[in-house]
Every structure is written in C-alpha cells, then in structure tokens.
Write a protein that binds this DNA or RNA. Structure first.
Lengths: 107, 107
DNA sequence: AATATACGCAACCTTTTGGTTTCTCAAAAT
DNA sequence: ATTTTGAGAAACCAAAAGGTTGCGTATATT
C-alpha cells in the first residue's frame, strides 16, 4: 500500500476535504455533509489522509475533529521547487532575449 | 476515465519521468532505460501524461521525443496557492507573537 | 437504565490502475 | 529487397482504489 502525499491528493474528494478543513477542524459527519457520499466513505479518505500525516485528529468527547497539517503541504511545494527553477529560467531567458533585442535596436 | 494532473503525478514512476525529461526531451526507449520496467509500461505512462497535457511529443523520423510542458506544472502551484496563504499567515502570527513578547520584555 | 449518536472497522463488490505479452506498422539499416 | 529498430495498440491479468452495508463500542441524552 503506497501512502504518500501525491497519492493522497490524487483524489478530488480528498482535495476538497483538505480545502474544507484547511481553515477549521471538522468532524467526519460535518465533512460528509458537504459531499454526495456516505460518512464511511469520507472516513476512509480521512484515514488515508491521516496515514500520510496530512491531517491529524483531536478527540473531543465522542467527536473527533480533523485538522489539516499545513506543514505537510509544503512537501508538494518542495517537489515543485525543481520545476519552478526551470520556469523561472525560461522567464530569464525571455528577459535576456528582450534585452538583447533592445541592445541591437539601440546600436 | 479521470485524467488530471494530480492523478498523473500520483504515480512515482510518472513523477520520475517528469523530472527526467524536464531538462531535455527523450524517446520512450531512452526513458525506459532509466527504469526497471518495459518500454510498453513507460509508453502507457507517457500516454497518460500526454492526455493531461503535461508532456508533448515531437516526431523525428521514427523516433518520438517527449518533452515536459512546464507551463502545465504551474497548475499544481496554483492549487497550492490557497495553502501558501495559510502557512504564511501562520508565520505572520508567529512573527506578531514574537514581536508582542519582545514588546512586553521591553516594558 | 435505556436509547440515541458519533465514529471506526471489517467484509464485500465493482472499477481503475499498472504491468506484461503479443501484434502491427513505419522508418532505417544492411 | 530484406531485416532490424522504434514505437503505438490491443488483449489480458493481478492488485489497488473507492464505494457500500453491517457491526461494535464509547460517549451523550432521556
């Protein structure tokens, strides 16, 4: 069973859950109300998200509040870093090209 | 058949392919040499990546070079944006807290 | 004490995924 | 002209994903 962040965010429902609880912790029932599935299905998604440590639980009486581990989200950002370097380079190349063209014009 | 970027980058082999061809276009055979699978398996991954427009092909004789569509990668970045806002806010809150503590110390 | 609620867990089912093997076709090499 | 090489397409398969229903248990409510 592969369980990493990229796997976790592949599912659109899970991405929606992440967005939903990003600002405030919620219980499985409360979350399920936002979707067109059963609580159990949501519960499964929550388990997957928990297993890859994207969310954490906090028990309050018989209710369990799920909260986003925002720090973990940075791992995606970290992976993107290598490509960001490329698209910024592309931008710089364009920039240089424009500068060169300007230079030629001025000559 | 769901075919979006998040789905595409969920597979570790596909992420590796993306990284591999990020800097220079490669043929399926050349790509497959880097992995422990058959060319056909790689070919399937390439098809999925092509379908969600993360890569594009360029035919040269009987060889097909696959190249990363770096622009498409920005869509992931775009999704992350909402969370970046949160983790920067958290940082600011911490910053404010530290400032407050400093203020109290100074009093 | 009895009932209702919140939740996780397990069993089960269907569809999707990731892979392999085989086939075909077009371009290159001999 | 024949053979080799690069590559997509199709058929097939095992494993995983995503969902459902049913059950057990702990906490609240009455």
């Amino acid at each position: 069973m592969r369980r990493d962040i990229f796997q976790a965010i592949a599912d659109p429902t899970r991405r929606a859950i992440i967005t939903l609880i990003a600002l405030q912790a919620m219980t499985p029932n409360a979350i399920a109300e936002h979707f067109d599935t059963t609580r159990q299905a949501v519960s499964k998604h929550l388990r997957i998200l928990t297993e890859c440590e994207l969310i954490k639980q906090e028990q309050k009486g018989r209710e369990i509040y799920y909260q986003l581990e925002i720090e973990k989200m940075k791992e995606i950002d970290k992976w993107l870093e290598q490509f960001r370097a490329i698209w910024e380079t592309r931008f710089n190349q364009l920039d240089n090209l424009l500068t060169d063209l300007n230079g030629k014009k001025k000559k």
